[in-house]
């Protein structure tokens, strides 16, 4: 009996701690668990969440994508600017295509050329930041006719009582989850991440698999940029700065392993949402916004350590 409780704590200790956290906040702030507030949290995490869906694919193959923060900035600038020039629909199409192109470029360098993913995407982060300034000329862009355009629907709209960005995130999560769990591509992703050599011996082309995960990551960042542009109705040159790390934090917090092969969309959704609820709960309790960073630090260390300890069978390395 003692063992089962021990095992339970080990396996779900973090979930329990999180529930306790939710309970404490709920007792002290009535609004916390109201549907309205929950939707607010989900609305806030929809952008990082959307990006995290794509990054989960990349991380599952044992690679990283640090370029998505700069990419988000670039694509948001593009979507807002092109909205003024070409109209909302062409702007969205262009944004998504640009996201796919950058993802494909990363994918070629990491998948086919075989360069280190961390450095390549770091270089891309710098390069894209430059591209942002080149494109925008250093000034911020705003949607000219913010009150009239249907473009507002992605960031600000509601559908059947649900915020549209939340719907987009959830639909995206379901699609990504289905792709990972039920398609041949998903199986290849897990295979390459779990054991690249064995996958090659099973006739899987690891290069293409890695390539496509970066394309997915570029695409989800494109969708996130549409939501971002629509919510802000403008874009600063630093709007996506640091997003790559927040997104990675969420993915890692969910328990997806940086070594690849283990993790899921479901876990990413949980991880990203946890970050959202911690942020929101601490604000409701009256803490300044930066206290969430301290808590996030502690939660990441504890969560990953517990996860690792459970897999290893002992706490210390």
């Amino acid at each position: 009996m003692g063992q089962t409780i021990n095992g339970l704590l080990r396996r779900h200790g973090l979930a329990l701690a999180f529930l306790v956290f939710l309970g404490v906040v709920a007792l002290n702030a009535d609004a916390f668990l109201s549907p309205g507030n929950i939707l607010d949290v989900l609305r806030q995490v929809s952008i990082t969440g959307m990006m995290a869906l794509g990054v989960t694919f990349v991380v599952l193959t044992g690679r990283l994508d640090l370029s998505i923060g700069s990419l988000l900035t670039l694509l948001t600038v593009i979507v807002v600017d092109q909205h003024n020039i070409a109209g909302p629909f062409p702007a969205i199409v262009m944004t998504l295509l640009a996201g796919l192109a950058v993802g494909a470029f990363n994918g070629v360098l990491v998948g086919f050329v075989g360069l280190n993913a961390l450095i390549v995407t770091l270089a891309m982060l710098s390069f894209l930041q430059g591209l942002v300034l080149l494109y925008s000329g250093g000034s911020n862009v705003n949607v000219a006719n913010a009150q009239e355009t249907w473009f507002a629907v992605f960031g600000r709209g509601d559908f059947l009582g649900l915020p549209v960005p939340v719907i987009l995130f959830l639909v995206g999560a379901v699609i990504a989850g289905v792709v990972l769990q039920f398609t041949t591509f998903g199986r290849r992703v897990y295979g390459v991440g779990g054991n690249e050599t064995a996958s090659v011996f099973s006739g899987i082309d690891a290069r293409w698999t890695v390539f496509w995960t970066y394309v997915v990551s570029g695409f989800t960042t494109g969708v996130a940029a549409v939501i971002m542009g629509s919510r802000v109705m403008g874009a600063q040159n630093t709007i996506g700065q640091g997003y790559e790390l927040t997104v990675l934090a969420g993915v890692i917090l969910g328990g997806t392993s940086l070594l690849g092969g283990s993790g899921s969309i479901w876990r990413t959704v949980i991880g990203i949402s946890m970050l959202g609820f911690i942020q929101n709960g601490l604000l409701l309790l009256g803490f300044p916004y930066y206290v969430q960073w301290l808590v996030t630090w502690a939660v990441i260390i504890i969560a990953v350590w517990i996860d690792l300890g459970a897999k290893r069978g002992r706490i210390f390395a």
């Binding site: 295979g191 050599t197 099973s202």
Partner: peptide, 18 residues
């Protein structure tokens, strides 16, 4: 070279013939 160790028997069996 033979197995993806963290996968189960089902997924390992179908891996070469997706």
């Amino acid at each position: 070279q033979g197995l993806v160790l963290m996968m189960g028997g089902r997924e390992n069996t179908s891996l070469p013939h997706l």
